[in-house]
Design a protein around this nucleic acid. Structure first.
Length: 358
DNA sequence: ATACGTAATATCCAGAGGAG
DNA sequence: CTCCTCTGGATATTACGTAT
């Protein structure tokens, strides 16, 4: 209780200005933002007329998002800091990885960002701090994409420099990511896990990412159950949400499934697919093979011996309810299996008695 | 192109379970 | 016992495909 209040006060001290800003989405644009808007859009029009209409729409949404960001940033840093230009080579990324790596060609919106910066310049500064170890270098709190895009274009990057502690850095990073809502489930999960592994208090991470404690718990479970190499191979998978990642995590608890997944990752067809499709390839191949690969008998036997480990493929789960054991059949149980078990109970019982004697 | 129904997701809540 | 984590599940929202 006390700790909670302290944390909140701490957060307010760090981000008071940011937190009190009304939600950007529903506010009418301010005059200067609007001016910026039309100025940025103008040069695009001829391109759009000659090119794809869809691309135009995407660029526009990207730009308007940038403008919202700009306005928010401007308000929060009003008067206190200046925007400076930095050589992208001097700026390292945060010590906490948030986004999954981008492979070339996979991230269309990044290409749009590059294009936008090439044409209109960088609309929104990034937030950095002086590098704690390297004199003259910087570390990003957020704006990794803009940084990389500026580097690609070969321009200097507009940045706000602020002295930030480690904690302030990750909180700023987390808040930014959360507000933009452009991190996928798995990215947020790994971000949370990275923070926790770094020794940040769980409650603090929850606040920074606006996470429920229940979500926090599931984030960490998924992040530790799915091997990092597989996640990296899949990528951010923006359309895959919690339920399917949780299921995948369960499936991957068996050694054979993990092997199958890393085999799948090497296929050319896998590499050619986009991130969402990659997830689905692994997910569906595991779903398909799992109930077959692990015969029902074996599954339930393992279930009893190492209940925790094999939930993935188990046809049933054993748990205690008010001191009494309860056996629940899962979706992996073939239809009619529960009835079959019920009808065989007598035989099972006698086998059990026999085993007990010997 | 629009409207509708379905599937998937995000978010939240209540309570179980386990550690200290 | 309290505190923290975990699980199950309900609900609202969003995305998507299909029929009109």
């Amino acid at each position: 209780m006390m700790a909670d209040k302290n944390r909140r006060d701490q957060l307010r001290a760090l981000f008071g200005t940011v937190e009190t800003i009304p939600t950007p989405e529903h506010n009418p644009m301010e005059p200067d933002a609007t001016a910026q808007h039309s100025a940025s859009v103008e040069p695009l029009k001829p391109r759009a007329a000659s090119g794809a209409v869809k691309a135009m729409g995407l660029s526009l949404s990207g730009i308007s998002r940038e403008i919202e960001d700009a306005r928010r940033l401007k308000e929060s840093f009003e008067g206190s800091e200046r925007v400076v230009e930095l050589d992208p080579a001097l700026v390292e990324s945060s010590f906490i990885e948030d986004r999954l790596s981008y492979e070339s060609g996979l991230d269309e919106s990044f290409e749009e960002l590059v294009e936008s910066i090439r044409l209109n310049g960088q609309q929104v500064p990034i937030l950095v701090r002086p590098h704690p170890d390297k004199q003259g270098s910087y570390q990003t709190a957020y704006g990794h994409r803009r940084l990389r895009a500026a580097a690609r274009v070969g321009k200097s990057v507009q940045a706000i420099v602020r002295d930030l502690t480690d904690m302030q850095l990750v909180l700023a990073q987390g808040k930014e990511n959360t507000e933009r809502r452009d991190l996928s489930f798995i990215e947020r999960a790994f971000f949370a896990r990275n923070l926790v592994e770094r020794g940040f208090e769980r409650g603090l991470v929850q606040d920074a990412l606006s996470l429920d404690k229940a979500e926090m718990s599931r984030f960490l479970q998924v992040a530790s159950a799915v091997p990092a190499p597989i996640v990296r191979a899949i990528g951010p998978a923006p359309k895959i949400g919690r339920p399917r990642w949780v299921r995948l995590a369960e499936l991957l608890k068996s050694e054979s499934a993990r092997q199958a997944a890393s085999d799948e990752v090497r296929l050319d067809a896998f590499k050619a697919a986009d991130s969402n499709a990659r997830f689905n390839r692994i997910f569906e191949s595991l779903l398909k093979q799992e109930p077959v690969a692990v015969p029902a008998q074996q599954a339930s036997r393992t279930l009893v011996q190492e209940e925790r480990d094999v939930k993935a493929s188990a046809v049933a789960r054993l748990r205690a309810d008010k001191g009494r054991p309860v056996l629940t059949f899962t979706e992996y149980a073939p239809s009619g299996f529960a009835e079959f078990v019920a009808s065989e109970l007598d035989q099972l019982l006698s086998r059990f008695e026999k085993q007990k004697q010997s």
